[in-house]
Amino acid sequence: MNERTIFLLDGVGAALSFILSGLILPYFSDALGLSKELIYSLAGIPAICMIFSFRCYGFIKPIKSWMLLTIILANLAYSLISGSLIVFHDGLSDVGKYLLLAEILVVMGVMILEIRVLQKLRTFPRKSL
């Protein structure tokens, strides 16, 4: 996977997360044990990631390593916020915990791919003597 397609993957994943968090999950807020406001707040991070990733995928040439590092850190922040809800939010239902945990695992999988692409991007070919 190259640096351009990783941004497409991240953008699509962020779009799905935004649709889930911003449009679908608020209807199930009681079952999740999360307020609608909190769910809408969570949707903000994938919305920003979606815009950034699609912009990098479609318009930025060449991709710089700081761009990939930015999206990795944003995904990490989203995972940490979601994880802190699992640990510290008293009213969170089991369904809410499993949903957040599943999303964290998916985001971490994407982050692993992003880190691999970042490592390739930062590796420069060496000339043999």
Rank of each mutant, 00 (worst) to 15 (best):
66 W>P: 15
20 L>R: 07
46 P>C: 01
16 L>K: 09
123 T>H: 05
87 V>I: 12
95 V>L: 13
77 A>W: 10
123 T>F: 08
83 G>Q: 00
64 K>V: 15
79 S>I: 08
106 V>Q: 10
129 L>P: 15
112 I>K: 06
108 M>H: 14
70 T>H: 10
67 M>E: 15
114 E>S: 04
36 K>D: 12
94 D>R: 11
95 V>D: 11
79 S>T: 08
102 A>R: 04
102 A>G: 10
127 K>T: 11
108 M>N: 13
43 A>G: 11
117 V>K: 00
6 I>G: 03
45 I>H: 05
43 A>L: 07
11 G>Y: 00
85 L>V: 04
83 G>W: 01
97 K>C: 01
5 T>K: 06
104 I>P: 10
63 I>E: 01
25 L>I: 05
14 A>W: 00
16 L>G: 13
126 R>E: 06
61 K>A: 07
16 L>V: 12
106 V>P: 09
100 L>A: 00
126 R>V: 09
22 G>H: 09
81 I>M: 04
5 T>P: 04
36 K>R: 13
54 F>G: 02
14 A>T: 01
111 M>S: 05
74 A>N: 07
20 L>Q: 10
18 F>T: 13
46 P>D: 01
115 I>L: 05
105 L>H: 03
94 D>M: 12
77 A>D: 07
44 G>T: 13
66 W>N: 15
102 A>W: 08
126 R>S: 05
2 N>S: 07
81 I>R: 01
100 L>C: 00
57 Y>V: 01
2 N>E: 02
23 L>C: 08
75 N>W: 03
39 I>L: 13
119 Q>D: 11
26 P>C: 04
83 G>S: 02
38 L>P: 08
95 V>R: 10
50 M>Y: 07
42 L>A: 09
110 V>A: 06
38 L>G: 09
123 T>R: 12
4 R>P: 06
43 A>E: 06
110 V>M: 07
55 R>F: 06
127 K>L: 12
68 L>G: 02
17 S>T: 03
26 P>L: 00
54 F>R: 02
56 C>M: 12
29 S>I: 10
59 F>V: 02
91 G>D: 06
69 L>K: 15
103 E>M: 09
60 I>C: 10
85 L>D: 03
38 L>K: 13
76 L>D: 15
105 L>S: 05
92 L>H: 09
